[in-house]
Computed example of a mutant assay.
Amino acid sequence: MPHRVDEGLAGTMKRVAATLKTAEIPFALGGSFAVYAHGGHSSDHDVDFLIREQDKERALQELAGVGFETEEPPEDWLVKVFEEGRMVDLIYRPVETPVTDETLADTERISVEAIYMPVLSATQLMIHKLMSFSQHHCDFAHGLPVARSLRELIDWERVARETAASPYAEAFLVLLDRLDVVPFPARDAVVRGG
């Protein structure tokens, strides 16, 4: 059963989504709220939207116009908006990969807290999660609940294929196999698809 979400944060998420929809700015819900939208469990409590980099200035203008505080932090992969202290990340380059029209097409329209919006696919969510692991950040405890709760929705062969360059992702997939969460994708399937 999915965990309950913070109602204030959910309200902020809905207002950002409604503003982006009204402005016809392409976006997708990502992060822990996307996991929640798919019926999964995430231990994180943040709101992430994916947008294209060319839309970031207009997104900030539209959100500022309806009362959000905006911030362009020194990191060059996201911008932030705030409502009464609640933060929303607008990410245009997750895991060093630009958000494209193709990224935003890899979504499902789901009713999230009573508002329909594009939600990043469970497969793409898992790919982003695995590609975020590095020698500086490799906390599998955040990835395991996501993998367990969304395993039937995830194309594991695609995950293995698209994360093949990462030893951390491979270690995580081996761990899932050893824990009997999902079998490790067959090598020939990974190579054949790549």
Rank of each mutant, 00 (worst) to 15 (best):
V66Q: 02
T100M: 06
H3I: 12
A169K: 08
E7K: 14
G143P: 10
A141P: 04
F82K: 04
F82E: 00
F172C: 06
G193N: 08
S121V: 10
A164C: 05
A64W: 01
T100Q: 07
P98M: 01
V81I: 06
R158L: 05
A34Y: 12
D55M: 03
V174E: 13
P2S: 12
T123E: 04
G193D: 07
Y92G: 01
V5K: 10
L144N: 01
I110D: 00
H45R: 12
L153H: 10
L150D: 09
L144Y: 08
P185F: 09
G85M: 09
F68A: 00
D6L: 08
A10T: 09
Q124P: 00
K80I: 08
K56T: 05
G40K: 09
E102K: 15
G85V: 11
K21P: 04
V66I: 15
H41D: 07
E57K: 03
G85H: 07
I91E: 09
P145K: 08
M126N: 00
G39F: 13
F82Y: 15
D76I: 10
V35H: 05
R4Y: 09
A164T: 01
A37Q: 06
R86D: 06
V79G: 00
V190K: 02
A122M: 10
D106A: 09
L78R: 14
D46I: 11
R161N: 06
V190Q: 02
V112E: 06
T163D: 05
T163P: 04
R148P: 02
D76R: 15
I154L: 02
P183F: 02
S149R: 06
F133D: 04
E152M: 05
V159F: 04
S134N: 12
V181M: 12
A23F: 01
P185L: 07
A10V: 05
L20A: 04
V182H: 02
E84G: 12
E170R: 13
H41C: 07
A186M: 12
D89N: 10
A18I: 10
H41T: 12
E7Q: 15
A165G: 13
P185Y: 11
P145Y: 05
S166K: 00
A59K: 01
E83N: 06
A10I: 03
K80F: 04
V35W: 06
V35T: 14
R148T: 11
A147P: 04
L50S: 03
D101V: 10
F33H: 15
L130S: 01
L20Q: 05
T103N: 06
D55T: 04
V119S: 03
Y116C: 03
Q61G: 09
Y116G: 06
E75D: 13
I154S: 01
V47M: 07
L50G: 01
M1N: 13
D48Y: 14
M87K: 15
T19H: 06
A189C: 01
L173W: 06
P26Y: 08
D44L: 14
F140Q: 11
P185Q: 08
E108S: 14
A171K: 12
V191S: 05
A141Q: 14
G30L: 10
S132P: 07
T70E: 00
K56C: 02
K56I: 02
M117W: 08
H136F: 12
M131Q: 13
A23H: 00
L104W: 00
M117I: 11
L90G: 03
V35C: 05
D55R: 07
E113D: 14
V182K: 07
G143C: 11
D46E: 15
